[in-house]
Design a protein around this nucleic acid. Structure first.
Lengths: 202, 202
DNA sequence: CCTACCGATCGGTAGG
DNA sequence: CCTACCGATCGGTAGG
């Protein structure tokens, strides 16, 4: 047992704080997240919570990273068995909509909420959100390129346009589910995603 | 001059508060909007600001209504000259993307931001946001129905799916512009919108 | 529309 | 990890 007992406990406490912070900020936003609220929920003192991160901004960044890990696990890693290219792209679309349907986060897609909240601001949190979304677009684009190379998408397909459309449709499904509880939205999104992937460039 | 001078001035003050509230909350969110910030910006006392609305929630609702009016003016009313049906639908798509490109709100599409911020909450503000978005979907659906009746869209077109896709693409363009400053997004969104309107049901 | 004020809560620090 | 505390700000009220 290389970590001392107190270090292990500290790590578990920190993990519990982050887990709670993800759930709270999924509903209240990363700005609406407060140290006092977390301390109260976890029956700790405020300084006990803050001590693990130093500043609220560091807590926000850690919370964001944890939420990104959840998205990666629930969408990206779930499709690891699919063949690179169109098969994986189709699997990603299904896993993505499923992730929205399963209410993985109480406030809907964490990255979509965070993006809306910070897209008019500046600073490290905004930059981290933009970076994560940018990497996701690249992951989608990479699969689209493989699909073209395999002959599963037309050679002239616009890779960026495919990533843009898939992302937009997921955002639309998220809004329809969260705001209206529209149970037909996942189906509509899946169909439109499939149309995007079989009709490019037109 | 039927309104007395003091009433007229009060109305102008109120209008100035709402205008400022729209700009502030477009960046900070409707929850991030504070009475103190508004008072400071407008060089008024907090109670002078709050007196026009009573509560913060009433201020939020008034601010939201004002932002909806801006959207209506910048997107819906701009297309009033277009013929009902497909022509107006196409005009709406252009005006919608143009509204995003012109940065009408500093924080991007107000309704999209508000929807993300409140979709995990309850209460009158959330309800007002859902109602406004619902009416917009209906306006789009109504034009789509007219387009079908005129023979400009196939008889089997899924009206709700068209509204869903157009809305999703506008959300995607908003994110790409606000978060990445992606100048190719408006073009990508316009193309995808046109594809939606010429390829339904497939 | 103002001043003056309320209790609550904010992020954060000192010291242990 | 705690208690005790800081100045600032929150939404809101009383009274004029």
């Amino acid at each position: 047992m290389s970590p001392r007992r107190s270090q292990l406990e500290a790590r578990q406490t920190r993990a519990a704080i982050v887990e709670r912070a993800v759930q709270v900020s999924s509903v209240e936003g990363l700005e609406g997240l407060t140290i006092g609220r977390l301390a109260s929920d976890l029956q700790m003192s405020k300084s006990g919570v803050l001590g693990h991160f130093g500043t609220k901004e560091a807590l926000q960044l850690t919370t964001l990273e944890a939420a990104i890990q959840v998205f990666r696990r629930e969408v990206w890693e779930r499709t690891a068995d699919a063949e690179t290219g169109l098969p994986r792209l189709l699997a990603i679309c299904d896993a993505w909509i499923s992730y929205l349907e399963r209410d993985v986060f109480r406030g809907g897609c964490f990255l979509t909420s965070a993006s809306c909240e910070f897209d008019g601001r500046e600073g490290p949190v905004r930059d981290a959100i933009a970076s994560a979304l940018s990497r996701w677009h690249e992951a989608l684009g990479s699969q689209a390129r493989a699909a073209i190379d395999a002959g599963d998408l037309p050679p002239g397909s616009d890779i960026a346009a495919i990533a843009f459309q898939l992302n937009a449709l997921a955002m639309g499904a998220n809004q329809a589910l969260q705001l209206f509880g529209d149970q037909s939205a996942p189906q509509a999104a899946r169909r439109a995603m499939r149309a995007t992937l079989s009709l490019e460039p037109q």
